[in-house]
């Protein structure tokens, strides 16, 4: 066995990547369709689907909070991991800088989402 091996901390990021990849694969397309296409164009869904009252009610519900946080945070952790790897793959080995940019953005977005969701009350 080789000596001086250093344990990789990748499982944390890889775990978030896997969860986000699966979550976005399952729900991503339909979410984009609902929030970005159907509701703005008034297709299929009732006109008040994303009204202020409805969205507040959703964001004040504990399950709603969990879903919103999962979507924003996991999508970003998934993307951060892939983009970080892609940068390495196209020859940008920025190391710590690229790591901070990718995972840092996901981390800050997670914190902002959590703070807003908590501030909206229950």
């Amino acid at each position: 066995m080789k000596s001086g091996l250093k344990r990789s901390n990748a499982p944390i990021f890889w775990g978030l990547f896997g969860a986000g990849g699966m979550f976005s694969a399952l729900f991503g397309p339909m979410l984009v369709f609902i929030t970005g296409i159907a509701v703005p164009l008034g297709l299929m869904l009732p006109a008040n689907t994303m009204s202020y009252a409805k969205m507040m009610a959703f964001a004040q519900n504990i399950i709603g909070k969990g879903f919103i946080l999962a979507v924003i945070a996991l999508f970003l952790w998934f993307a951060a991991h892939r983009i970080f790897h892609s940068l390495h793959e196209i020859g940008i080995h920025a190391g710590v800088g690229a790591k901070l940019l990718c995972y840092g953005s996901a981390f800050i977005a997670t914190v902002i989402s959590a703070v807003v969701l908590l501030s909206l009350g229950f």
């Binding site: 964001a59 919103i68 924003i72 993307a79 983009i83 790897h85 892609s86 793959e89 902002i112 989402s113």
Partner: peptide, 29 residues
């Protein structure tokens, strides 16, 4: 792999939406 860029962009739009929701009805509209 590059589809991740679009997943990130969409998540950022939702993040902005969430922040606007927290700022009140006018911001959300």
């Amino acid at each position: 792999e590059s589809t991740a860029l679009f997943v990130a962009a969409y998540a950022f739009i939702l993040l902005v939406g969430l922040v606007r929701l927290g700022q009140g009805e006018a911001a959300w509209s």
